[in-house]
Design a binder for these strands. Structure first.
Length: 644
RNA sequence: GGCGAAGUAGCUCAGCCGGUCAGAGCAGGCGGCUCAUAUCCGCCGUGUCGGGGGUUCGAGUCCCUCCUUCGCCA
């Protein structure tokens, strides 16, 4: 598939649920789409980038009613949360669609009418259990303890007429398509999941909701007593936004390059519902469906008791949007989960951006200011050293390399490839030493600086889709053209000698990394080095203070069945509800004797399961020869009293 | 319960179709430079590639099995 046809890259994000507050997951997905769009544009393709919001459904109706607003007024207000966020993340989309817009509703109705006319939709009886929380029906077998299997919420038995899409007709065709197109669903593990899902008989899809129950939706054109099921409505945004049934020529062109970026939670709706809908409508399937992973914040769900809650999006205000985008793209492998922590973020910022890239720009510009009147010095007539040649060759190879990695969705490797060029330039300067050469041979020193600047220009061009703001600024600083990047920008020799250089301040100021294990916080202080191999490592007061010690009163105690040394305790830590804890003190202490006693507990220990029960903390005891001896305050104190 | 993925240096991870695949970055140690944001450059890793079996001249790389973790489905 390397035909040089006019290639189109049409990238979509999911349309986000308008009730949601934007979080790191929305931001990642949308920034990734933006980065991909910018890369493909750089590579000379026609690109189109669509995002938007999903505004129909029961929860919107309810949320609006709660606020005493009409659903539309509610949506008009809420959609701004997303629309206003994107510019602050330097996301530039070509269109932003809302499912309540007439241009969308008209297409949904047209599509429904066509399917109805073609017999792809039929009226049937539906009997099942309805969960309003997730707006889904479940069969009796699917319920868990008579509740919604997904949320545990209430369900209602419902028997009603509804309309069904003959999804089951397309099962074999869909399996066939997925088998024939190994890249259709990425990553491969998700593709396997879909094939696994399709190994079971596919049912028809209920695509209507009676208006009596849900009015906030698009009416079925052939039966105004019903509105359209939200997914059937929402998925069509990918087509309605680019002119389906209104501008067929534009639609065909853009749709031929369709790529859907989604979270792994909506894999089935996209790869099964959506694809079969398209088949029934006689439309081609998208080129790719790409499911990305989740960000885990500080490895777990954010925890209030740990006091380390970081809103990842707030980091852009403190450290810059470019650094945040760089981190998101560099740290996550598309398709897999990744960890988000401020510490990891600052490491990337300091090591990659401040030390390697920022310092490189800075040292080159400052040197040129002093030695070459602040202008790009002229290049040599011909390369005189092997370093000259190898640097140029690496820079010339970087473009095609990055392009192939981006097309393979290895974004983190593409970023790394560009950064490797940056590191190579630093090495080039160390090897050729222009700052020494300049004393004897200024012309040669100038040629060396030109060579380095030119390689840097290419590196910045390749990093620009990820950090559009900062890279544009730095390209300007080294005297490069900063109009929208193009394939030609990746050719060697684009920098014109004599262009003035200008850089104000350090491009990426270093930031202190909050102290963590093994890293002294204050560099000047004589950090006590841990004795090489003997004796326990010393911990800082900061580290010690991370642990919350509290006094608690034992409320209940009982042996853990199946263990002779574990006791299951409930300890009142003054938190309202007592904490379940498991302690290995059963051989020494009689459960009954513990109730009412006070103990010392590590309150912010990560919860873990012991013998199948959750333990949310640790009871402290001296580990004596005769077994554990519990620690207790010498006089009673209120439960929850901190220990320092 | 079924299906699938993962388990590689202290940490985070690369390793496609079996044969320089035993690697990178970070952390740590040593050395060099001083144009530069205490930055940059060089050198230093004896890892049972989760355990066990098997196929093969040869296996992190294929097969079987077990363990652990995660995901999807039921």
């Amino acid at each position: 598939m390397t035909v040089a046809e006019d290639r189109v890259f049409y990238i979509t994000t999911p349309i986000y649920y308008v009730n949601d507050r934007p979080h790191i997951g929305h931001a990642y997905c949308t920034v990734l789409a933006d980065v991909l769009a910018r890369y493909h544009r750089l590579f000379g393709e026609e690109t189109f980038f669509l995002t938007g919001v999903d505004e129909h459904g029961q929860k919107v109706q309810e949320a609006a009613a709660k606020r005493g607003l009409s659903p539309q007024a509610h949506c008009d207000e809420m959609q701004a949360h997303f629309r206003n966020l994107w510019p602050t993340l330097h996301v530039v989309h070509d269109d932003f669609i809302r499912t309540t817009e007439p241009r969308h509703e008209a297409v949904v109705q047209e599509a429904l009418q066509r399917l109805w006319d073609a017999g792809e939709i039929y009226r049937g009886e539906y009997e099942g259990f309805y969960s309003p929380r997730v707006e889904k029906f479940f069969t009796a077998e699917e319920l868990v303890d008579g509740k919604c299997p997904e949320t545990g919420g209430e369900v209602f038995r419902i028997q009603e007429a509804n309309y069904f899409f003959r999804m089951s007709r397309y099962q074999d065709a869909l399996i066939d398509h997925i088998r024939r197109n190994p890249d259709f669903i990425a990553p491969e593990s998700r593709r396997n999941e879909v094939l696994g899902f399709l190994s079971q008989p596919l049912k028809d899809l209920c695509i209507s909701r009676p208006k009596a129950r849900l009015s906030w939706g698009i009416p079925l054109p052939f039966d105004p007593e019903f509105v359209t099921y939200v997914w059937f409505d929402a998925l069509l945004n990918y087509c309605s936004a680019i002119g389906l049934y209104r501008d067929e020529e534009r639609f065909r062109r853009l749709w031929s390059g369709a790529h859907h970026l989604i979270g792994k939670d909506i894999l089935t709706t996209h790869s099964v519902y959506w694809t079969t809908m398209l088949m029934a409508l006689g439309l081609p399937l998208p080129r790719r469906i790409i499911a990305h992973g989740w960000w885990l914040v500080d490895r777990t769900k954010m925890s209030k008791s740990l006091g380390n809650v970081v809103d990842p999006l707030s980091l852009k205000d403190r450290y810059g949007v470019d650094s945040l985008r760089y981190f998101l793209m560099r740290e996550m492998v598309v398709g897999l989960d990744a960890d988000f922590s401020e510490e990891a973020f600052l490491r990337r910022h300091n090591f990659d951006l401040a030390n390697d890239l920022g310092n490189l720009v800075n040292r080159l510009v400052r040197f040129a200011e002093r030695a070459f009147q602040g202008r790009v010095p002229p290049p040599a007539d011909r390369e005189v050293s092997s370093q000259d040649r190898s640097l140029r060759e690496m820079a010339q190879a970087a473009g095609p390399l990055v392009r192939s990695l981006v097309e393979a969705l290895r974004v983190e490797q593409a970023v790394e490839a560009a950064m490797n060029l940056v590191r190579r330039i630093n090495r080039y300067l160390a090897e050729t030493e222009p700052f020494k050469v300049v004393k004897e041979d200024p012309a040669r020193a100038g040629a060396l600086v030109y060579q380095a600047l030119e390689a840097l220009r290419i590196a910045l061009t390749l990093l620009r889709p990820v950090m559009p703001g900062k890279c544009t600024e730095l390209l300007k600083a080294i005297g490069a053209d900063t109009t929208e990047g193009r394939l030609e920008d990746l050719r060697w020799g684009g920098l014109a000698a004599g262009t003035p250089l200008a850089l104000e301040g350090a491009p990426f100021p270093r930031h202190e990394v909050p102290s963590f294990e093994g890293e002294p916080a204050a560099p000047a202080a004589e950090a006590p080095k841990a004795p090489a191999s003997e004796g326990p490592a010393l911990v800082s007061i900061e580290d010690f203070q991370k642990i919350q010690w509290k006094v608690g009163t034992v409320v209940s105690a009982a042996p853990v069945p199946g263990s002779d040394k574990l006791l299951a305790l409930e300890v009142d830590l003054g938190e309202g509800a007592p904490r379940p804890l498991v302690a290995g003190i059963g051989k020494v202490y009689d459960p009954a004797s513990l109730v009412g006693r006070q103990v010392v507990v590590v309150a912010n220990l990560a919860p873990r399961k012991v013998f199948g029960r959750e333990s949310r903390g640790m009871v402290l005891a001296a580990s004596g020869d005769q077994g554990p001896v519990l620690l207790a305050p010498m006089a009673p104190v209120p439960p929850g009293t901190p220990v320092r």
